[in-house]
Amino acid sequence: MIAAMTTQVYAALVTIVVVYFILLGAIFLMRAAMVGTEDKYAAKGKVYKVRGFYFWGLCVVLTVGLFWTLRFLPYEEFQQKPGEIVTVVGMQWAWKMGIGSTDVKPKDFTGANQITLPVDTPITFQVTSEDVNHNFSIYNDRGVLLAQTQAMPGYRNDLQYRFREKGDYPILCLEYCGAPHTIMTGKIHVE
């Protein structure tokens, strides 16, 4: 169960919990604001005392959050050499993918919008674009976004990913790139 939890679900859970407390607090406050038993200095004093705790609590949470989450950066997922290198070129409105690194210009690169890759192998996608900005996004067949990187003309972004399961992985473009943007799809077969 836990293993199947995606990052999206964690993100949503954190958000839901915090929003729940915001709403509880808001309702409590709306009621507490309608009475006026204390003089205002006493009331403010109480609030500021809570604020002191809140401030330090928040600092701790944010610091822990920073250290925790900065361990999961997408920039260099694995230290070892990639088992496979894939060149990816985005164009209006298709993907060109091919095995291996390349020196040819993005415009002259020939590739297909389908590719077959090995399972459980560290793979580096060398992603660029020949015209406008695109975004190379890997989904699984249940529609979960797994990894992405921008495809920017003139730059090469290296996305590292390891497919854990065999199957078909749809590729979408997640950077709006003109009217036919939504048909800019591809597929990775993992065996």
Partner: peptide
């Protein structure tokens, strides 16, 4: 990420708590 996280501190600890201090037992 640091700047985005840190921006939560003044926004909540000062402005949101300012609102709370305005309201708490104010007989609004």
């Amino acid at each position: 990420q640091l700047a985005s996280y840190m921006s939560a501190v003044p926004a909540t600890a000062v402005t949101i708590f300012g609102v709370i201090a305005q309201l708490y037992h104010s007989k609004i």
